[in-house]
Design a protein around this nucleic acid. Structure first.
Length: 434
RNA sequence: GCGGCUAUAGUUCAGUGGCAGAACGCCGCUCUGUGGCAGCGGAUGUCGUGGGUUCGACCCCCACUAGCCGCCCCA
């Protein structure tokens, strides 16, 4: 597409969403809201930017997201006595939700909090299909004091079962659920140390990327796709052997509940997640090749974060949540849709001659107020053109000419059947509704 | 952040160192009130931006920008 130098355009990695695509976005969000509300979730809206410290402490200083992908700036001081504050566009929404939970003392209600959000997130990555610098996530968080049952494996299973229902209702085909447990914070620490140790003698035989990961983030070696290294990776210690008894039992109960609900899953011992706050249950839903996502095939991901509230200076508030990449979900639905079913409007009013325009608009007002979706043509159009325009956007055409105005009897033609009838002004709304 | 491919009409894309093309879409006519078909006619564009080579560049070279693919990472 031509891009003239002098004109402004959406910045790299951002994009405009236009009709008719926005109809699909609304459809997806409507279904998501419906499912979330049936499971007892209420909406939360947190600010789009937060104190940089929130993400540094919550998501993890060493993660790629925080160390190189955040949009951060110094907000100027309001008074000389004040220091400038470092602010950041949110790269994810969990930290903001937990911050709000702490700030509003939601834990003091003693109740389990079930919250969902839908909104844009920002990460400065190299743009690619299904990966944008401003992207949309729909997510939920379940958290609360231990006494509210927030730590129960039932909650994990409920969230996963809800996701299976949501994807089915949206019509996503061929999704796969992969689950794993990364244990408690202590388990992870011990596992990380063991992994580092096990990698020492063998890492020189691995690819360059994995050698680097062995130093910086040993967990990431596990999801390496390098074929030559698979044998070594398979021989590395398994996280499952490092789980303490309560984490083991927790994971077993989650799987048992999924079995009871009939939700299919695969345990993937190599599934590790990149955000520091994850503990115990982690999961990912992926879609098959050919679903429009290329290698970015993770539709959503999430897990437990039992220590996050405390990391942010709050009370103990174990929780679990996930985020759906809405852009990716839309791409998947578009790629999987056999035929695009553009919803047609109920009627197209074709005034014959410009002197009938006013009457056409008045009729449109009447029908629209009666709840019908109506488009109005223009009396300047030749009838042939009106028909062509009408067939594109509406199920029926209503012809409004001199005869019709004089007699009060309108001509209505249904495109699908070719049937044409005369309808009185009084019956028109009912006739169009049929 | 790294590597590769691409950029021509509203859209999808051909194209050649010497006048800018097709299909679809759009507009008009055949055709004052019954379309989808057909025939005829028409409008489209700084050939992504900037520079270089050349008598001459949409084409060759360089840089930039953007998109796509892979990596990294993640949703």
């Amino acid at each position: 597409m031509p891009t003239p130098t002098n004109s402004l355009k959406a910045v790299r990695g951002t994009r405009d969403l236009l009709p008719p695509e926005t109809a699909l976005w609304n459809h997806v969000e409507t279904i998501a809201r419906s499912v979330f509300s049936r499971y007892g979730f209420g909406e939360i809206r947190t600010p789009i930017f937060e104190d940089t410290q929130l993400f540094a402490r919550g998501v993890g200083e060493e993660t790629d997201i925080v160390s190189k992908e955040m949009y951060t700036w110094e907000d100027r001081a309001r008074a000389q006595s004040e220091k400038a504050q470092s602010l950041t566009l949110r790269p994810e929404n969990t930290a903001g939700v937990v911050r709000a939970y702490i700030e509003h003392k939601l834990g003091d209600t003693g109740q389990l909090q079930k919250l969902f959000y839908i909104g844009p997130q920002f990460r400065r990555e190299r743009p690619q299909r299904g990966r944008y610098r401003q992207f949309w996530q729909m997510g939920v968080e379940v958290l609360g004091p231990t006494s509210s049952g927030a730590e129960s494996p039932l909650r994990d299973a409920e969230v996963l079962e809800m996701l299976a229902t949501l994807l089915d209702e949206l019509g996503v085909k061929g999704w796969r659920l992969e689950v794993n447990s990364v244990g408690s914070t202590d388990d992870r620490k011990r596992y990380n140390a063991a992994l580092r140790e096990a990698l020492q003698p063998v890492k020189s035989r691995m690819c360059e990327d994995n050698q680097r990961r062995a130093e910086t983030n040993p967990l990431r070696v596990l999801d390496s796709k390098e074929p030559a290294d698979q044998e070594i990776i398979n021989g590395l210690p398994k996280i499952a052997d490092f789980l303490d008894e309560s984490s083991q039992s927790h994971f077993a109960q989650v799987l048992a509940a999924l079995d009871a609900c009939g939700v299919a899953y695969t345990v993937n011992p190599r599934l590790v997640r990149g955000l520091d706050y994850y503990t115990r249950t982690t999961f990912e839903f992926t879609v098959p090749d050919g679903s429009g996502l290329g290698t970015q095939n993770a539709l959503l991901g999430g897990g437990r974060y039992d220590g996050l509230s405390e990391m942010l200076g709050g009370p103990k508030a174990p929780g679990i949540g996930f985020a759906i990449g809405e852009d990716r979900l839309i791409l998947t639905l578009q790629a999987q849709a056999e035929a695009e079913v553009a919803a047609k409007m109920d009627a197209y009013i074709a005034p014959m001659g410009v002197e009938r325009n006013a009457a056409a608009l008045a009729l449109a007002r009447e029908l629209r107020r009666a709840g019908l979706s109506v488009e109005v043509g223009d009396g300047g159009f030749r009838l042939k053109k009106s028909f062509e325009a009408a067939d594109r956007v509406a199920r029926r055409i209503v012809i409004l000419g001199e005869d019709e105005l004089a007699s009060g009897v309108l001509t209505v033609k249904t495109f699908a059947t070719g049937e044409q009838t005369k309808v009185t002004r009084a019956e028109i709304a009912a006739a169009l509704r049929a």
